[in-house]
């Protein structure tokens, strides 16, 4: 099953619509509520980041019998230093975003904690892509956490795959 949602940058009144509708779909599919909660928290954080930090974005949801894969792609300023952005407490959120209750600098780390596999890629000046995978039928895999940090040609990325695959 595949479907998509659009996200408008700057529109805080609608932030969370995608996560809320994915939550409903997962409930209808009888997905384990614990898995579902992890999925929607990660997606909500990513959705809010597009609203807070980028211009526009798309959420692509892909669910099969083994996993829920969510890809959030945005057009925006991108992230110069992903390693730094991943640090808890690091935030460039504007005063306006902080007034809405965001800017703790915890969103990316929440995405990582709530997913079995988390990959972020960004091209400064173009945009950012986050991919979150949660496996069904089994909860978080705390052991064998594998982090990879690599610098691509133009894009930089950060990935964590808790399955060891």
């Amino acid at each position: 099953m595949q479907f998509s949602h659009k996200i408008a940058g700057g529109d805080f009144s609608r932030a969370g619509h995608a996560a809320s509708s994915v939550k409903r779909v997962l409930r209808e599919l009888n997905i384990d509520p614990i898995v579902s909660k992890h999925v929607v928290i990660g997606l909500y954080e990513a959705e809010v980041n597009v609203v807070a930090h980028a211009w526009s974005g798309t959420v692509d949801v892909d669910i099969d019998g083994t996993r829920v894969k969510i890809t959030i792609t945005d057009k925006g300023p991108g992230i110069e230093d992903i390693e730094r952005a991943m640090e808890e407490g690091y935030s460039t959120a504007s005063a306006e975003v902080r007034e809405m209750g965001f800017g703790a600098g915890l969103g990316l780390s929440n995405m990582k904690k709530n997913s079995d596999s988390f990959v972020i890629e960004s091209i400064p000046g173009e945009g950012t892509k986050v991919e979150l995978v949660n496996y069904l039928g089994r909860h978080k895999v705390p052991s064998s956490i594998k982090n990879t940090l690599k610098a691509g040609r133009t894009a930089t990325s950060y990935g964590s795959n808790k399955t060891g695959i």
């Binding site: 805080f12 932030a15 939550k23 929607v40 909500y44 809010v48 809405m100 209750g101």
Partner: peptide, 15 residues
């Protein structure tokens, strides 16, 4: 101390 829609959205996701 914050009253906006995102508080409700956040509570929705966090159950």
């Amino acid at each position: 101390g914050l009253a906006n829609l995102q508080v409700i959205r956040t509570a929705e996701m966090a159950e």
